[in-house]
Simulated scan of single mutants.
Amino acid sequence: MRLPSWISQHVAALRAVIVFTIVLGLAYPLVMVAVGKLPGLDSRANGSMITVADNKVGSKLIGQLFTDKDGNPIPKYFQSRPSAAGDGYDPTSTSASNLGPESIVDTLSKNPDDASQSLLTQVCTRSLDIGKLEGVSGARPFCAPDGTGAVLGVFRSGGFTGPITRVVAVNETGTPFLDTYQGVKVEPAQNDVDYQAEGAVMTPIRGDAPAKPAVPADAVTASGSGLDPDISPQYADLQAPRIARERGLTLDQVHQLIKAHTDGRTLGFMGEPGVNVLELNIALDQGQK
């Protein structure tokens, strides 16, 4: 007996669903699980966890903070790069700050909930703090000495052209980082005032900081995921004198550890070399036992 065409079509569709369910829903996942259990791959399949004395201390794929309960860096440990994921390296809140190069003006307000720092001020503040921690200059272009973004709101008589009539240090409510700009006295900013909306032209001031700051870029900027476990060899080298001093090691010993935990470019040409901070700090602790 020949089935009606509509029934034949439904039977064929049901067969396809059953076959693909078995192949893709059962067989394929089981094969992948089996591959993940192969020697050399099993640890990666389980999150690349690092175990020390039978205790899992973290994953080599996710960074973590090495700070005390008040958020201050612990001097004897290498420090990771900043993180915008939750309170720092929170895998459940992975994200970036969503601030870009044009974020140069802080939101100043008497209400702390309404106030926020621009990316420029965040970078300047971090660079200043790291400079103090490592005993180097934290100065960098377009940063004021107090760690805020060095940005002026310049008012002109013709809007974008004409003589300057007023200048405001838009990120500073205290003493401005410049006394005058092109002969016009610089005013401190006022809270809850949008100077750009009032017609000021935002003008970053480079200052006299070196073109290549002592504090590298990855030390003051968060990664896109907020979970990057690596720092650059340059940032690791910057921290080496502090680690040697705190641990009672020679600088050469610390540099050898950094080199041993530096991964090269992927496939030899993709990306940049990176130093895994967790693995490096574990090596330091184990070397001191």
Rank of each mutant, 00 (worst) to 15 (best):
R2M: 11
P4Y: 09
S5G: 08
H10V: 08
A13T: 00
L14G: 04
L14E: 04
V17A: 09
V23K: 02
L26T: 06
Y28S: 07
V31C: 05
V33G: 00
L41D: 03
L41R: 13
D42P: 01
D42R: 05
S43F: 11
R44Q: 09
G47K: 15
M49T: 13
I50H: 12
D54K: 09
V57G: 10
Q64G: 13
D68K: 09
N72V: 09
D87A: 07
D87F: 12
P91S: 06
T94N: 07
S95I: 05
N98I: 05
G100H: 13
E102H: 14
E102C: 04
I104C: 00
L108I: 11
S109N: 12
S109A: 08
P112C: 02
D114G: 01
D114L: 13
A115S: 15
S118M: 10
Q122L: 13
V123W: 14
V123F: 06
T125D: 02
L128F: 10
L128M: 12
S137V: 01
A139H: 05
A139R: 04
R140L: 05
P141L: 06
A144E: 07
P145M: 02
P145V: 01
D146R: 09
G147H: 11
G147R: 09
T148H: 10
A150Q: 04
L152W: 07
S157G: 01
G159R: 13
T165N: 03
V167W: 14
A169V: 08
P176S: 00
F177N: 05
L178W: 13
Y181R: 08
Q182K: 14
G183T: 15
V186T: 06
D192G: 04
D194V: 09
Q196V: 02
A200T: 04
A200G: 08
A200P: 05
P204N: 05
G207W: 15
D208M: 05
A211P: 00
A211D: 11
V215Y: 10
A217N: 03
D218S: 03
T221N: 15
A222P: 05
A222M: 04
S223K: 08
S223A: 10
G224K: 15
S225C: 08
G226I: 03
D228Q: 10
D228H: 01
D228N: 13
D230Q: 11
D230G: 08
S232M: 08
Y235V: 08
A236R: 13
A236S: 12
G248W: 13
T250C: 04
D252N: 07
D252C: 01
Q253E: 12
V254C: 02
L257V: 04
I258L: 11
K259S: 05
D263P: 04
G264T: 03
T266M: 09
G268K: 03
M270W: 06
E272V: 11
P273I: 04
N276L: 06
V277A: 00
N281D: 02
G287T: 01
K289V: 02
